[in-house]
Nucleic acid binder design. Structure first.
Lengths: 337, 337
DNA sequence: CTGTTAGCGCCTTCAT
DNA sequence: ATGAAGGCGCTAACAG
C-alpha cells in the first residue's frame, strides 16, 4: 500500500496525497477529508524510509542510558519517550552498563542510526571531555550539570547536585544527627562527586567533620548498596543517619540495616535522592531529594528540538529538587546524642 | 557522500560498491580492498534509509510493552534488549498504556517500521484472537501462555499462571490462613484470570470458599494497588493474608496496610508474583512466585530468531516459576484461627 | 568479475 | 487547487 494506491483509489494524484499526508494548506478541505477517509479505511501508513530518504532527515532521537539497574532512569525514560512523541519524533533507546564507555557506543549509534539528536541519561564527564567531539549532532546530557564541559552542541539539564546533597544532609543535621554515613558512587561519577562535596560541606558548616570511614562506595543498584551497607556494618561503623545518593541505594541500604536488626528510622534515619515512584510506596516511605523528572524530560527535549530545528545554541538548565518528607528520618535517640 | 561518489573516486561502478558494502563474494579481493580503503578515508557510511527503502526490511525487532508502570516488564525488557543484541538485531521499544489496544498499535508499527519480528510483553488474548492475523511477521507473546490462541507465526513463552497462583495460595493456606484476599487484574487480562482461577482452585481444594468480596481489582501499578487495598480496608474486609498478582501490586498493598497500621507479616501476610529485583530488597522482603525472566528472554528471542531466519514453526514454551520465601508471610495469629 | 539500469515510496518544483 | 515528473541513495536483475 503506497501513496500511489491511495491516489488511484481516491481518484487524485500522488502529489495531492502527499500534500494531505504533510498537512499542507493548499488542498481543498473536501479532497483532504476524502483522502484521509480512504487512508483510514485501508490502514495506510507512509513509508518512513522513503520519506526520510527524500527529505534527508530521520526525525528520530536516541536515548543513551547508562546504568540499566538504575530505576531512576527507567522512570525518566518513559517520560522522555512521551515528550519526544509529542514533538513528532521517535525515540530509540540504547542501554549501556554503568561502566560502559558511552561515547564509544554513541559514536557507533550515530553512524548507524543517524538520529537527529541524542539525549544522554548519565555519563562520565571524563569520557565526554575526551570524546564528545565525535558526536556531530545536537545532544543533551541529562542529570549532570557541570561547567567542565563546553561543547557548542551539548546542552545540560539537571539539578544542582551539590546544593541538593547539602540540603539533604542539613536536614539530617537539623534533626540532631551528628554521625552521618554517606553511601554513593565513586569520585569518577560527577554527580556522585558533587553530592559528596555537598554532604561534606553541610557537615563542616555545622561543625561536624566528614569521616571517610563513614563513606560507603556503591554503584546505583540495590545489590551494590546492600553489600556496601553490610560492609559498613561489619566494620562497626557508628552512625545514626544515612545519606544515600539515590533512592535505589537507600532501599538497598535499608534492606541491609533491616537484616542486621536495625529499625529505620528508629535506630537509623535514611534519606535518599531522586524521588522514584517506589520511594513513596516502600515501608518506611523514603525521605528523598526529588528530582523533577517531568520537567527535566520536558526541558531536555525542548532544548534538543530547538537545537535541531532552529540551530539554537546549547544551554544549561539547572532545576530545583524538592524535599520529600517521607517516614525514614527522625531525630536520633536522645536528641543530639 | 553516496556510493556514487565512492564509485567515481574509486573508478568503478556503483554496483561494485554496493557489492562491497554487502560483502558479496563476487568482487575481486583487490578491488574490494581498494574500495574499502576509500570508504574508510572519506568516512563513508551507507544511507540506511535508501537501503531499507530498497530491500524493504530492517534487521530490527520491536518490543510492544503493555503497561509502562509495570516494573516487571522494565526488568524483562533490559534482558530482551541484551539478547537480541547478541543476535545482531536491534530492538526498538514501543510503550503502551495498560489499557491500550496493542494490536492496533502493532499493526501501525508493522507498516511503519517493518521490523522482522515482534515480541509482545503482555497483551489481551481477546485482542490477539480478533486481530493478530494482521501481524504478518513472526511474533512471540511473552508472559502469556494460552491454548486459546493458535496462529502459525505466534509463539508463546511464559509460566503456567494458574499453577503458579495455585502454589502461592496453597503456601498461604499451609501456613494456616483461611481468609485470603486476592488483589489483581480484571478477567479481561488472561494472566489475571488464570491467576485468579488458580487461587480459587487452591482455596476450594482446601475446603475454603473463594469470597468475591475479598477480591480487589487493581492494575499493575503501585498506585492502583495502594488504592485498591485502601478500599478493601475501608469496607472492613476481613483477611489474614493477601495474594497479590504481581510484586508491584504487593508493594502498593503493603504500603496501604502499613499506613493503616497493619504489620506485614505480623497482622497480614502478603505473597507476590514476578520476583522483580525490588522484591528482594524491600522490607519485609517479599515472598513471591518468581518468573525466570532471564530464561524467558532467552527463549523468546531464540524462538523469534528461529522463526525469522529459518521459518521455524511457532512454539509454546512453559517455564516453571520458583517460590521465593521472603519474610512477608507467616502463620496467622493463633494458628489456623 | 564488473557495469548499466530500473525502480523502492515519497516529496517537490514547475506547470496548469 | 491539482497533476506530472525528476530524483533522494541504494540494490538487484540483467548484460556483458
Amino acid at each position: 500500500m503506497t501513496i500511489k494506491d491511495i491516489a488511484r483509489i481516491s481518484g487524485c494524484s500522488v502529489s495531492t496525497i502527499s500534500r494531505v499526508i504533510n498537512d499542507r494548506p493548499d488542498v481543498r478541505p473536501e479532497t483532504k477529508e476524502h483522502v484521509l477517509e480512504i487512508m483510514r479505511q485501508v490502514g495506510f501508513v507512509p513509508n518512513s524510509n522513503a520519506r526520510q530518504l527524500k527529505i534527508q532527515q530521520s526525525r528520530s532521537v536516541v536515548f543513551v542510558v547508562k546504568g540499566t539497574q538504575n530505576m531512576f532512569f527507567a522512570d525518566f525514560l518513559v517520560q522522555l519517550q512521551q515528550v519526544v512523541g509529542l514533538y513528532g519524533y521517535s525515540g530509540i533507546v540504547s542501554y549501556l552498563d554503568e561502566d560502559a564507555n558511552e561515547m564509544e557506543a554513541a559514536g557507533r549509534i550515530l553512524r548507524e542510526i543517524k538520529p537527529k539528536g541524542m539525549i544522554f541519561l548519565g555519563g562520565s564527564v571524563e569520557n565526554f571531555r575526551r570524546s564528545f567531539d565525535q558526536i556531530t549532532v545536537p545532544a543533551v546530557l541529562a542529570t549532570v550539570v557541570t561547567d567542565e564541559l563546553d561543547f557548542p552542541n551539548l546542552s545540560m539539564v539537571g539539578v544542582d547536585d551539590r546544593a541538593a546533597a547539602y540540603q539533604a544532609v542539613t536536614c539530617l543535621i537539623a534533626q540532631g544527627h551528628r554521625q552521618i554515613c554517606v553511601v554513593g558512587g565513586p569520585a569518577t561519577s560527577y554527580p556522585s562527586r558533587m553530592r559528596r562535596l555537598g554532604a561534606q560541606q553541610a557537615m563542616e558548616d555545622n561543625g561536624l567533620v566528614f569521616d571517610p570511614r563513614l563513606y560507603g562506595l556503591s554503584s546505583y543498584s540495590f545489590e551494590s548498596a546492600y553489600n556496601t551497607m553490610n560492609s559498613l556494618l561489619a566494620r562497626r561503623a557508628q552512625f545514626t543517619a544515612v545519606f544515600a545518593m539515590s533512592d535505589v541505594i537507600a532501599i538497598g541500604a535499608i534492606r541491609a540495616l533491616a537484616s542486621a536488626g536495625y529499625k529505620v528510622p528508629g535506630d537509623v534515619s535514611v534519606i535518599g535522592f531522586d524521588g522514584i515512584a517506589m520511594s513513596r510506596y516502600c515501608v518506611p516511605a523514603l525521605a528523598s531529594m526529588v528530582q523533577p523528572t517531568g520537567e527535566m524530560a520536558l526541558r531536555a527535549v525542548e532544548l534538543l528540538i530547538r537545537q535541531i530545528e532552529h540551530g539554537a545554541p546549547a544551554q544549561t538548565i539547572v532545576l530545583s529538587p524538592t524535599l520529600q518528607e517521607g517516614e525514614s528520618i527522625r531525630p536520633p535517640r536522645g536528641g543530639a546524642a
